[in-house]
Amino acid sequence: MTPLQKAKNLMDVGQYIPALTILETLNGLSLKSENYRLLFMSNCWFNLEEYDWAIEIADRLLQKNPKNELASQIKYLSYCKLKDYDSAFDEIIGFLSYNKADHYKITLEELLTDIRAGFINDEDIISKIKELALQNDCVK
């Protein structure tokens, strides 16, 4: 078993600190393995409620791989946990302006529900969310 797989197994059972200990020492990885390492680290920090670290690591991954939807989602959810909703909207809108939604489809559907319920009132954000939802077949 590779150290990366061992770290993933630890994450899967909620052992985030031991997983991070392994992940932080790995180097010389292939590009694909490095992307997984960063994604796993960001996920660990998110689950440890260290949202600033989760954002920083996810951002490093997105600089290498701008199409990594899971990294973008970790950033989005971290900003939500920090109650930085402007940055959360910027993240989802920025990502989906250049990429198709897969995992984000559920988030778009939830945002449409929030718009209908009156929880989101900024007309520019409402317009952009509706546009992205249409582009990604999320409109019911």
Rank of each mutant, 00 (worst) to 15 (best):
6 K>H: 10
56 E>V: 00
52 D>E: 08
102 D>V: 15
76 Y>E: 11
52 D>Y: 06
35 N>D: 13
28 G>P: 07
131 E>S: 11
80 C>T: 13
25 T>K: 10
44 C>A: 05
51 Y>V: 00
69 E>P: 07
66 P>A: 03
73 Q>W: 10
55 I>Y: 01
126 I>L: 09
91 E>S: 04
49 E>V: 00
90 D>Y: 07
16 Y>I: 00
127 S>F: 12
54 A>K: 01
102 D>H: 14
38 L>M: 05
73 Q>Y: 15
96 L>N: 12
35 N>Y: 09
121 N>G: 13
99 N>S: 09
102 D>S: 14
83 K>I: 06
21 T>V: 09
125 I>D: 11
96 L>G: 09
46 F>H: 04
96 L>S: 10
89 F>C: 02
51 Y>E: 01
139 V>K: 11
128 K>V: 11
111 L>K: 13
120 I>N: 04
132 L>T: 01
69 E>I: 03
130 K>C: 08
7 A>N: 08
33 S>R: 07
51 Y>A: 02
72 S>E: 05
71 A>F: 08
29 L>E: 02
119 F>Q: 12
45 W>V: 04
79 Y>P: 03
62 L>R: 09
111 L>T: 08
130 K>T: 10
53 W>G: 00
117 A>W: 15
54 A>L: 01
130 K>E: 14
68 N>F: 00
55 I>R: 00
27 N>P: 02
133 A>K: 04
99 N>Q: 12
40 F>L: 09
110 E>M: 12
138 C>H: 09
68 N>W: 04
20 L>I: 07
36 Y>L: 12
91 E>D: 09
86 D>L: 06
133 A>L: 07
36 Y>G: 08
21 T>W: 07
72 S>W: 06
34 E>L: 09
92 I>C: 02
136 N>K: 08
69 E>L: 03
20 L>Q: 01
108 L>C: 02
51 Y>P: 03
107 T>N: 13
121 N>W: 13
99 N>L: 07
